[in-house]
């Protein structure tokens, strides 16, 4: 339904996005994952026709939308990262305005407003001024505004940034419903791994302006199928112990965390015995040891050498 081909964007000589090719099938929920500054927002700005790419193409049902963006804009709803609302107006007034600019009027407009408010669970508080809302409520109205014209594709740019867990959970559930029950095609960008794992069928991972991996969650995790992750929880940091572990040839990657040490090992490697011996030598107090199957976070770490929220 929607695809991009080798999208590139250069700002004042600096390449923000390079060679970004991705596709979305109808009714699919796709995640675009990457740390801050990875190029996610620039990519979705190009896809949503807000930004002209330096090179490459965006196609909707096989037709390029670069020169003629109106077709794309008709079927597209965008939930921006910012709270793109008029703070001095009520939620109802905001939605009324956004409905009007899509040509809605009279009963159709009123129906669209009530439908959108119901979707985001703000029917009761629709007449309150938006700037008096909590962060989570503002985010919900932000989504409702993008839903006024019943788009077929919705692009959400980090829609849960800076909100409380309850509102976040509400929004995630809403997105899931939109995708699974109403068949909406969703492109969801986030730097929260668990959101993408929960919502998306397929994932693109971006870093430094490039898509470095893509596939279903299982496909991505299979990158690490030959590996396993071992968490060693310690009572306090032991730098000498960590240094010794890093020198073990069998350990592919060792990372020091707040609570202990994370090791990525080849599957089936018998290195734990040596780890315990080293802990004896350094008089390390181990509280817990946990062997995990890989997560997307591990895949990201493996691919980029850094954490998603770094």
């Amino acid at each position: 339904m929607l695809e991009t081909e080798e999208l590139k964007k250069v700002f004042k000589g600096k390449t923000a996005v390079e060679g970004a090719s991705l596709y979305l099938d109808k009714g699919e929920s796709v995640g675009l994952l990457g740390p801050n500054g990875a190029g996610k927002s620039t990519t979705i700005s190009m896809i949503s026709t807000l930004l002209k790419p330096t090179s490459g193409d965006v196609r909707l049902n096989g037709k390029s939308v670069i020169k003629n963006p109106s077709e794309m804009r008709r079927v597209l709803g965008v939930v921006p990262q910012e709270i793109a609302l008029y703070g001095e107006l009520t939620a109802y007034e905001n939605l009324k305005f956004f409905g009007r600019i899509y040509g809605l009027s009279g009963k159709a407009l009123e129906t669209a407003i009530q439908r959108s408010l119901e979707l985001v669970g703000l029917m009761e508080r629709q007449k309150e001024i938006v700037k008096t809302y909590s962060g989570g409520m503002k985010r919900r109205v932000n989504i409702a505004a993008a839903m006024m014209h019943e788009p077929e594709v919705i692009i959400m740019d980090e829609p849960t940034v800076g909100i409380d867990p309850q509102s976040r959970s509400h929004i995630l559930e809403m997105v899931r419903q939109l995708n699974q029950e109403k068949g909406l095609t969703v492109l969801y960008t986030s730097h929260y791994m668990e959101e993408v794992e929960r919502l998306c069928d397929r994932v693109y991972i971006m870093d430094h302006g490039k898509i470095i991996a893509s596939g279903t969650k299982e496909e991505l995790k299979s990158i690490l199928s030959s590996e396993e992750t071992v968490w060693i929880e310690l009572d306090r940091p032991y730098p000498e112990f960590f240094k010794e572990l890093q020198s073990f040839e069998m350990i592919k990657q060792a990372t020091e965390t707040e609570k202990g040490i994370k090791l990525i090992l080849p599957k089936g490697s018998r290195v734990l015995g040596k780890v315990f011996q080293a802990s004896e030598r350094h008089q390390v107090q181990i509280i817990n040891v946990n062997v995990q199957t890989p997560s997307l976070e591990d895949v990201f770490l493996h691919l980029t050498g850094r954490k998603l929220r770094d």
């Binding site: 026709t49 807000l50 965008v78 990262q81 709270i83 600019i101 993008a146």
Partner: peptide, 10 residues
């Protein structure tokens, strides 16, 4: 960001 919403509208 409201400008972008307007731009994306008809």
């Amino acid at each position: 960001g409201t400008w972008d919403r307007l731009i994306l509208s008809p």
